[in-house]
Design a binder for these strands. Structure first.
Lengths: 236, 236
DNA sequence: TGTAAGTGAATGAACGTTCACTCTCATCAT
DNA sequence: ATGATGAGAGTGAACGTTCATTCACTTACA
């Protein structure tokens, strides 16, 4: 990312670069193994073999298996931040979300990525330490999408009757679910999936002519007026 | 399901009933353990302890850990069949799907059920044997929903421009995703989630006044005319 | 008394992690 | 030039645990 030059930074980076390169090698190997077998079934020996490295040496770069998972979480967070930055720059938040979904699906097109993503979710649900590692990622995604939606409401691009926080979580749930189902349902090609997804988001989010009255309960009206009840979880 | 009477079937069921009761006890214990720890981390000893039973005795009822998982898959399949039967009897398929989603969310309201559900999906993505066990469930769900949607299209309740197979998979993905996210996002109460979900399904599935032109590509038109390209997966 | 139900210690394999060790190579007094 | 030095890179056998599964055994009932 940062220092591109060769002889610019004088000292203390010559060996640090090599160290980070090794860490990256281990991370890539671990992601492949975790995707293939899950956090529990993938053994450190598997990761060592995938990284072409002995066990003893691997432990010089990561304190434990858990530390590797934490590093994966951080890498994912950084990668996602780029997606959300593009969303914030979008004129129309709905189009921005559709474009974000497109990019996300493209990134999740490999064989490994969707499996790792689903494994992370499953493990986060039950293991508090893993959940803590990825909670920041989820909260940042939620905050970015919710901000985009509220901005869209203010501009008239988005239905003001929507329960923003729940709607955002629904979209995140949809994304995670699609990523998983695409592994099983091979007829969900990029083209077909993106087309249906675009229709879904447009219809769901856009303002409606007050015909479908089902909305506007006490719940959603309260969410539209002031700050909603629970912008981010962790409390009651 | 079947034999309800007490003295109807004469022989060979007196001890068979006790055997099935034990199997159910083991299954319930296993589901709790799998939900708590995942398929790999939950040990047979854990399941034995949860079921109040020794290891040797448990193996008299299930040949292996995998056999327990297969039995869980079958139990889920039977339970889901009841939901889909109600869907088929619904006059308006959209309302039927909304009602199905409501029931599904209610069933997934416990602490364990969503975790087990997500664990199943994660494991099905990578383990071919587990995938085979649950593939029938997924295909039956897909078939039931797709049939309902096509019926709804014929009756004018559902947008005929929808790519039915992809749309169905999207709804299944949404359901699975919501179930998982509700564990993390405690603000997704039953009320708020059901309200937003109803809006989403209504807007997504209902026929539209041809204003949002985004649909009607070559893909979705082909899916609307005859049998779609891939009603069920497994092939190219 | 025979058959099904139930026990729990034992088994070998595999797990995450550690540790005593070798190898590589820049440094520097000689 | 040379060879001693020592720190970091890398190795792989070994550790104590835990795993799924088995089996010789006891208990309960018909």
């Amino acid at each position: 990312m940062g220092q591109g030059g060769k002889d610019d930074a004088p000292a203390s980076t010559a060996s640090t670069d090599a160290r980070e390169a090794q860490q990256q090698r281990i991370l890539a190997a671990a992601m492949a193994c975790f995707a293939r077998s899950g956090f529990h079934k993938a053994s450190m020996q598997d990761i060592c073999a995938e990284a072409g490295m002995s066990a003893g040496n691997l432990y010089r770069y990561f304190r434990s298996k858990e530390a590797i998972i934490a590093a994966i979480a951080e890498a994912e967070r950084v990668r996602n931040a780029a997606l959300f930055e593009r969303l914030q720059r979008a004129e129309d938040p709905v189009r921005g979300l559709i474009e974000l979904a497109r990019c996300y699906l493209r990134e999740m097109n490999s064989r490994d990525a969707p499996m790792l993503c689903t494994e992370i979710i499953a493990e986060a649900l039950r293991n508090p330490e893993i959940r803590t590692m990825f909670e920041r990622n989820i909260n940042e995604a939620h905050a970015a999408c919710a901000h985009a939606l509220r901005q869209g409401i203010a501009q008239g691009h988005v239905d003001p009757n929507l329960d923003v926080d729940v709607a955002v979580r629904m979209l995140m749930a949809l994304g995670d679910g699609i990523v998983a189902h695409r592994v099983i349902a091979d007829f969900m090609t990029d083209d077909r999936t993106e087309a249906v997804l675009e229709v879904m988001l447009e219809r769901f989010l856009r303002p409606h002519a007050a015909s479908t009255v089902v909305l506007a309960d006490t719940l959603s009206s309260q969410a539209a007026s002031s700050r909603p009840a629970a912008p981010l979880p962790t409390s009651a």
